[in-house]
Amino acid sequence: MSAMSKQRKNIFYVFLVVVATIGKVVISFLESMGKFAVFLTNLLLSIVIPPYYPRQIVSQFMEIGYFSLPVVALTTVFAGMVLALQIRSGMGSMSSESLVAPIVSIGILRELSPVLAGLMVAGRVGASMAAELGTMKVTEQVDALVTLSTNPMKYLIRPRVIAGTIALPLLIIIGDIIGVLGGYLVSIYRLHMNIGLYLQATLSNLVMLDLSIGIVKGLCFGFIITVLSCYHGLSSSGGAKGVGKATTNAVVASSISILFCNYIVTGFMV
């Protein structure tokens, strides 16, 4: 009898621990969502209030846009090349210029170039942004800004978000061109297709939507990556370890968020 009640007590105890753990996770999730919402509101409220720090915007634009060009070019060119090969192999004898060319450009313009550029920038820029801001936070440089009459939101965050939101659509347009070029090179030089027919099939099937999807995605991804990376960077605490954690969180959160956003935007636009 008493053994039985003891067992029941144990089960009850385990149950309590499980509930408490779930509760803790939920609460900390809600807490971080709340903090993020406050951060985002502050950013958006400050968006029209000067000063604008144009030098910061330009230097961030170089960092995010210009220095990401090589990785974006490399990933999109290979994506275009492999796409042409796969369509040829998958479609067999059906695959002519008029099939391969439009599929390559639709695939590149609408999906591969935006997503690859987004992921590359999330990895490259998201990590370095979170690490830089995180280091500034834990070494009290962010506090020092406040004591020197400068709002960190306007001086550190806003230039990065503006630069990222402008840079990504441009990167994606460049990725579009290079990716289509990759498909073209493989089709002509490896699959020995007809240059004239291929070019004509590419151009005649292009519609405005192909381009505008990429641009809308670029605007969204650029905003998401910079906002999340800045948020995680600025909320780091506890020295080098905290900065490392913030960096990882920034990259993971921005990668997942842009893939999710990619689906939403596609769903709305097509």
Binding site: E132, T135, M136, T139, E140, Q141, D143, A144, L145, V146, T147, L148, S149
Partner: peptide, 16 residues
């Protein structure tokens, strides 16, 4: 804050 100057424990100079 513009009337207050602060020397931080770790210096907190902007390293960029």
């Amino acid at each position: 804050n513009s009337k207050i100057g602060m020397l931080f424990q770790g210096g907190a100079l902007f390293d960029s």
